[in-house]
């Protein structure tokens, strides 16, 4: 098994997963803007068009609403589309088909159809692309029953969760942080899946639970490594899926550490941190809490262009260190 594990970038891991999915199943195909000869805005599809042809790697016109709808229609009638939004921000243009159609079609038709659709959304800030190309909209979709919403944080999970998504009979929305695309990590060869709906304890600890998503997982791990030197022992839970939520893993972790810090990039208010906080407050873990729950999320502002403002808009490692330290030392 170990021999078959190599280092790949997050983008390469996704590309490999899509190739495996297409090799395994004739029904799988890719759709999106500039995913063919251009290779995708972030080079995730790369040269797949050379290997699979333009029938299976389809460049759409710049038509997100129509494109998303075509993917829904193909999914309902026997195909297995993987649809790439060039930026997650453009989900706003496809929202009608995602929210009103893909999410509800099975329900509205009384279970007569399924919508085995995968949509991929390059998300997040940090690239200087400003307010319309840097958002984190995963909680929007996480609010919609009928959708599954995942945020893999490592190359390993990016591949395994995409393969799980393709095998899933229901629509799965994958939010991929753009800054993760170049991140390298061990990825097994061949087909494997990482289950949707299951969080991962990325680091065990006794003093504090950090529940993080996407790029914040790595930042939380970096913060934990620093605080280890101060004798603070942090547990990092990588949520991985925001719908359906793995409540039990969060509850068990908080029962162990008695402190909870939620870290996510999306705007803090009404975000995933609110949901995680509430689920703990509503559970038996509440009685174990030694300190108030703390959330670190994005500032209540669109993402600014200026690089220093942009950085200040979302949690960075020093912010996580400071919040974690305060929590453990009882300063809050």
């Amino acid at each position: 098994m170990d021999a078959a594990v190599r280092e790949l970038s997050y983008a390469q891991a996704i590309q490999e997963a899509m190739a495996i999915a297409m090799d395994m199943d004739e029904r799988v195909f890719l759709m999106g803007e500039d995913i063919g000869v251009y290779g995708g805005a972030f080079q995730v599809t790369g040269d797949l068009v050379e290997r699979y042809g333009t029938d299976r790697v389809i460049d759409t016109p710049i038509s997100e609403l129509g494109g998303a709808g075509v993917a829904v229609g193909a999914a309902v009638t026997g195909m297995r589309p993987i649809f790439e939004f060039q930026f997650s921000d453009f989900a706003t243009l496809g929202m009608e088909q995602i929210v009103n159609q893909a999410a509800k079609m099975r329900f509205m038709l009384g279970g007569e159809v399924s919508v085995p659709l995968v949509m991929r959304f390059p998300a997040g800030s940090g690239t200087g692309a400003a307010a319309q190309h840097s958002q984190s909209l995963e909680a929007w979709l996480g609010h919609v029953p009928g959708l599954k919403v995942i945020q893999p944080a490592t190359p390993h999970d990016a591949k395994g969760m995409l393969l799980a998504a393709v095998a899933d009979p229901d629509p799965v929305m994958i939010f991929e942080h753009k800054l993760l695309y170049k991140m390298r990590g061990p990825v097994p060869e061949g087909h494997y899946t990482v289950p949707i709906g299951k969080a991962d304890i990325r680091r065990e600890g006794r003093d504090l639970t950090i529940v993080a998503t996407s790029i914040m997982v790595q930042r939380a791990l970096d913060a934990a490594a620093t605080l280890e030197g101060e004798g603070i022992d942090i547990e990092v839970v990588d949520l991985r899926t925001i719908r359906p939520l793995d409540r039990q893993t969060v509850i068990d972790s908080v029962k162990k550490t008695s402190r909870l810090l939620c870290v996510y990039e999306a705007v803090k208010t009404l975000g995933i941190g609110a949901e995680v906080s509430a689920l703990v407050a509503e559970s038996e873990a509440f009685d174990y809490l030694d300190a108030p729950i703390v959330r670190l999320g994005g500032a209540e502002t669109p993402i600014p262009y200026n690089p220093d403002l942009e950085k200040a808009t979302v949690p960075q490692v020093p912010d996580i260190i400071a919040a974690a330290r305060d929590l453990v030392k009882g300063i809050r």
Binding site: A130, A131, Y305, N306
Partner: peptide
């Protein structure tokens, strides 16, 4: 023009 908030694209 956009006080540093918008950049080229805005």
């Amino acid at each position: 023009y956009c006080k540093g908030r918008g950049g080229s694209m805005h």
